[in-house]
Design a protein around this nucleic acid. Sequence first.
DNA 1: TCCACCGCACTGAAAATTCAGTCAAGCCCC
DNA 2: GGGGCTTGACTGAATTTTCAGTGCGGTGGA
Lengths: 200, 200
Amino acid sequence: MSDRRTGILEAATRVIARRGIRGLRMGELAAEAGVSTALIYYHFTDRAGTLRRTLEFISDRADHYTADHCTADHNSAGRQPATRAADPRTDLEQILLRELQDTAEVRENSTAWGELRATAVFEPDLREELARSTHTWVHDVAELLARADPAGTAPAHAAAAERLTALTEGLSVRWLSGSLSLDHARRLLRGAVDTELARR
Amino acid sequence: MSDRRTGILEAATRVIARRGIRGLRMGELAAEAGVSTALIYYHFTDRAGTLRRTLEFISDRADHYTADHCTADHNSAGRQPATRAADPRTDLEQILLRELQDTAEVRENSTAWGELRATAVFEPDLREELARSTHTWVHDVAELLARADPAGTAPAHAAAAERLTALTEGLSVRWLSGSLSLDHARRLLRGAVDTELARR
DNA sequence: TCCACCGCACTGAAAATTCAGTCAAGCCCC
DNA sequence: GGGGCTTGACTGAATTTTCAGTGCGGTGGA
């Protein structure tokens, strides 16, 4: 909302969620942001630059919403602090299930995130950013796992966190691509948490 | 190899694996297939038709390589029949790990499959085909799970199969997008099979 | 003779990118 | 305290590039 640059980045996120990264047209972006196309070039030099900044923006903002841990605030897009309440297992479920909700915001973020992932397959430039962001997420989940299951070892928690986050991504894209209903995806994810924490 | 049409479809798969669906240029496809652009239009009318046939081709050929069960042959691309040997658990691992190998063929198929998945998010036309193919794969995995764990219930096997296949897709795209090494992905997948089959 | 095919020049439209210039704020100097 | 000057944000209208798709003359083989 604040300055134009940010407005453009927000608009770009919306357009990407609607059309995909490769479906983003500079003209459509300009219209969505309510500015002239030329302004976009003024700020971001070219399409590639615009995309690069937008993807940074997306992965910062997302950082998979995991803006929960101890350290209070985080950034402008700040998520609600994870309703930190019940036991760590519930927290864990909450964090993961947050990616599987039918609200405009989550849909937009998940879609954009999926696009980022898919595009990185063909564009090595994006990989570093992506790996960093993924790593943060995995790390946060591993921490919660450690709290939920203090008996387990750190490497085991790390592996479980990687599995749970990768599964979440897999389920998310299945949901968004219409192979899976939201409810079902959520059920499966809860089942996976149970399985990983060996409650049966 | 046989007829030109198939040659074009194979070439299209390679180009998609290299550039992505939206990155596929008719000219590049023609060059890759070693034919004239006109021939492509001759056979497939237009770009959309070419893509449609190619995506069918990909999901048939893949059908996630699960050309294993009883029924002998399958199609031209026929995979080796899953080294059917050891116990069902090993078979299961084999089937899933087959998606995580650094050979041109697997890379190509996995990449194309990921593209199909990612594109379907924005193009509802693709969803049915994709859901069908996904369902087949899940079903096959569920069957193996049932054999590996005869004590479990059918719904439990179905859920586990969905989780394992979704995880495989998640790991595959992380691998292809450079967030995960192949070895690590394979290790995680094996861990997941263990976890689902509750060997600890 | 017909089919499968090549080669290639060409069209038309959709996009990306550039350009020339406006407008408003700030600043410096008299 | 107001006139020149600079600078950054911004626009509308080109210009250029990139592609999909077409048309057509030609070729070789069954």
